[in-house]
């Protein structure tokens, strides 16, 4: 996770993703010159944006000022609308920082690959359980939670944040439960 001093030319990618939701605010909050400058100062070299249906919003964000800032920082930017989950996984794998909506799938993928993640709940969504998940995950130090108004604070925090590792034992616990249940059935048929 830490920057590799021995490989100064390596691409250090920031992945911004809205999943299958519409989240114009997240794209507009990240793609501004001050944030680009901050990401550059943290050592990142490229930005990859998955913007969903907000193609026009994304293009509107690419103002001359933003382009100038990117050029000054020597950073590149690319984008796409949607991808299937395997491709998103690949994007996450090769990213160093993920700035994401609060979807549980994306959060889990980031934790699996031990990525720095900044989660921004989409408050315009009706389902508030996404917000609950983001709150709880940030309370337990698995993610850094940010909001649209001051996403810079969250990104700044993410650089030195002591992210907790997500346990990898879940599927083993589940395997035990399933075997217990198969066992019970075995006894049922033998004695019952």
């Amino acid at each position: 996770m830490a920057p590799q001093d021995s490989e100064p030319v390596a691409d250090r990618k920031v992945f911004v993703t809205v999943g299958t939701t519409t989240f114009d605010g997240l794209i507009q909050a990240v793609l501004v010159p001050p944030i680009i400058s901050m990401l550059h100062s943290q050592g990142y070299t490229s930005i990859r944006v998955q913007h969903g249906e907000s193609t026009e919003i994304y293009q509107a964000c690419l103002t001359p000022e933003l382009e100038a800032e990117l050029a000054k920082c020597g950073m590149s930017i690319t984008a796409f609308a949607y991808a299937d989950s395997d491709e998103i996984t690949e994007e996450i794998k090769f990213a160093e920082l993920v700035i994401s909506h609060a979807g549980s799938g994306t959060i889990l993928e980031c934790l699996r690959y031990q990525k720095r993640i900044v989660v921004v709940p989409n408050r315009s969504l009706m389902e508030n359980h996404q917000l609950e998940l983001a709150n709880e995950m940030s309370k337990q130090k698995y993610v850094v939670k940010g909001n649209l108004k001051n996403i810079d604070i969250a990104i700044d925090r993410s650089a030195t944040y002591p992210y907790r590792h997500f346990p990898r034992t879940g599927s083993k616990v589940f395997a035990e439960v399933l075997e217990e249940e198969l066992d019970k059935l075995d006894k049922d048929t033998m004695y019952g």
Binding site: T20, G105, L108, G170, S171, A175, L178
Partner: peptide, 20 residues
């Protein structure tokens, strides 16, 4: 759907091939 399926396969990845 997507999310449920992803969680399901994440959960069942450690089942031993002999058990089921």
């Amino acid at each position: 759907s997507g999310g449920h399926t992803a969680e399901m396969f994440s959960m069942i990845q450690s089942l031993s091939p002999e058990s089921v």
